[in-house]
C-alpha cells in the first residue's frame, strides 16, 4: 500500500459522474520528464498532462497517487490503485502479470551518459537502476554492472567516477547532459524495451478498453504527438 499520495487531481468533470468510482492513477514521481514532483509538491510531467487528458476523454474522474518503483506492480494487482502510468515499458515479463494499453510513446532507444564521448562501453563499468530493463541488458551482455537504488544515484556514480557510464532512457538522461557540461551522451544507443503503455489489472478489461480508445483518439488528432514534443520524452508517432 505504497500510497505516497501527493496530489489529488480531482478532475471534477460533471456532476453526473460524481457518484462513480474514481480511477486511481499510480505513478512514481521521480522520473522527469515523464513524471516528477514539482515545486508545489504535486505530480507533474508528461504523464500528468497525458493522464489528465485521457481521463477527460474517457469521462473518468481520476486521482494521482505516487508509489515506489519497486512495488508498483504488486500494489496494482492488489488493488491499491487502478492504473500504472509511470514510464513503464511494455515487456513480455510484465505482460504475464498485468495488461497494458496500447503504447502512448513509440519504442525509443536507451542511451549512455558518460564523462567522455569516446568511451568503449563494453569494457567499462555501467551503472543502472536496480530492477530496470537497462540493468538486465547490461547483465545479459556480461559487462560490469553496478546497480543503485535510485536513478539519481546512478548519475552521481558517474560524476564521482564510481562508474564510467549510466544506461537509462534517453529522455531521462538528455536534460541531465544539457544541464551539466562535463556529462555527455554517447553516440551508441541500445534498442531495449517496447513502447511505454499504461498498466492495468488483467481483470479490468473495461478500463483498459476506455483508455485504449482515449489514447487512440489522441493519436488520431495529433494531440499526443504535440504533448510528446512539448515534454521531449521520445520520438513522435
Amino acid at each position: 500500500m505504497k500510497k505516497l499520495v501527493l496530489a489529488t487531481a480531482a478532475l471534477a468533470l460533471s456532476a453526473g459522474l460524481a457518484s462513480a468510482d474514481t480511477v486511481r492513477m499510480g505513478t512514481e514521481g521521480a522520473y522527469p520528464p515523464w513524471n516528477f514532483i514539482n515545486d508545489k509538491g504535486e505530480v507533474d510531467g508528461f504523464e500528468r498532462a497525458l493522464g489528465d487528458e485521457l481521463c477527460k476523454r474517457a469521462e473518468l474522474t481520476c486521482e494521482w497517487v505516487t508509489n515506489e518503483w519497486d512495488s508498483i506492480i504488486p500494489n496494482l494487482v492488489s488493488g491499491n490503485y487502478d492504473v500504472i502510468i509511470a514510464g513503464m515499458s511494455i515487456t513480455d515479463e510484465r505482460e504475464q502479470v498485468i495488461d497494458f494499453t496500447q503504447n502512448y510513446t513509440p519504442p525509443d532507444p536507451s542511451a549512455y551518459l558518460a564523462l567522455s564521448a569516446d568511451l568503449d562501453v563494453e569494457g567499462a563499468v555501467i551503472a543502472a537502476q536496480t530492477n530496470t530493463i537497462q540493468a538486465a541488458f547490461v547483465a545479459e551482455h556480461g559487462w560490469t554492472l553496478v546497480e543503485f537504488a535510485t536513478p539519481e544515484e546512478t548519475i552521481a556514480a558517474v560524476r564521482n567516477g564510481e562508474a564510467d557510464a549510466v544506461l537509462a532512457d534517453k529522455s531521462y538522461l538528455a536534460p541531465v547532459a544539457e544541464a551539466e557540461a562535463d556529462l555527455v551522451l554517447l553516440e551508441r544507443e541500445e534498442a531495449i524495451g517496447g513502447g511505454v503503455g499504461m498498466g492495468v489489472r488483467e481483470s479490468d478489461g473495461e478500463l483498459k478498453a476506455k483508455f485504449d480508445a482515449a489514447i487512440q483518439s489522441m493519436k488520431d488528432d495529433g494531440s499526443l504527438n504535440a504533448l510528446i514534443s512539448k515534454w521531449e520524452v521520445s520520438s513522435t508517432f
Binding site: 522527469p32 516528477f36 514539482n38 539519481e152
Partner: peptide
C-alpha cells in the same frame, strides 16, 4: 531524497 537530488532547471 526527493528534495536533495539534483534539480534540473527544466523542471523546477
Amino acid at each position: 531524497r526527493e528534495l536533495g537530488g539534483t534539480a534540473n532547471p527544466r523542471f523546477t
